[in-house]
Amino acid sequence: MAHVLEQGDTTLTETGAAQVSGLIGSLDPRVRILAAIGFGIVVVGLSSLTALGAAMVLSAALLWASRLPLGPTLKRMAMMDGFIIFMLVLLPFSIPGDPIFTLWGVAASWQGLWRAVEIALTANAVILALMTLVGTMEPVTLGHALYKMRVPEILVHLLMFTIRYIEVLREEYLRLRGAMKVRGFRPGTNWHTYRSFGYLVGMMLVRAIERSERILGAMKCRGFSGRIYLLQNFVLTAADRRFSVLFVIAMGLLICLELVWR
């Protein structure tokens, strides 16, 4: 997953970092989260290729509206496809049906091919909608919105802590890797590499736990009581209502497509 990050990229943008604006960026975070979940559930239920194609178009429209950088976003999607490609390639051979061609005595079927296309479309449409609707949010805003949506407080705390410390710990990891590198460490398939990586992970954990003790002390000093104080209140605007109505209509259309073109 490391190659998701360009040189100099931070893992997650923290508070105050440049936010992607655009049509999506101005919407209420709660609306965006609910829209993404609704979209996911509807699209996973679809099976006609026409409807799935329409869902993909809708995701692409959301991507355009969110003004996320096209290249990197599509690259991330392509990397996810890289993960599932083996499963998809096996499908035409494992689903029986009308043969397309035969490879080493195993027939590839049209039914299997369509099933693979169906899965690929679903997976890409849903993940793209999730990245454009929710991924464009500041991570801290995501935590606040989830809290407002009655996600258990402790889970939100855990999420916010994770968001806060991922970048700090990644920097620590890069420092340790740098220190290993200047001492001439070159990873390979050998005992020394695995031992060094094991010690690296162990050291990261020891430091993480020591850090968490300091954090707890600092938080107690400031009277941490486990409450989440929101810096801003979320208000539903007319634009949010318009988006919600349009989105629900779009979902309805997808379901209609599914029912008509079975």
Partner: peptide
């Protein structure tokens, strides 16, 4: 919570 959060990040 802090320990779990920092470990989760790790």
């Amino acid at each position: 919570i802090p320990t779990a959060g920092v470990l989760s990040a790790s």
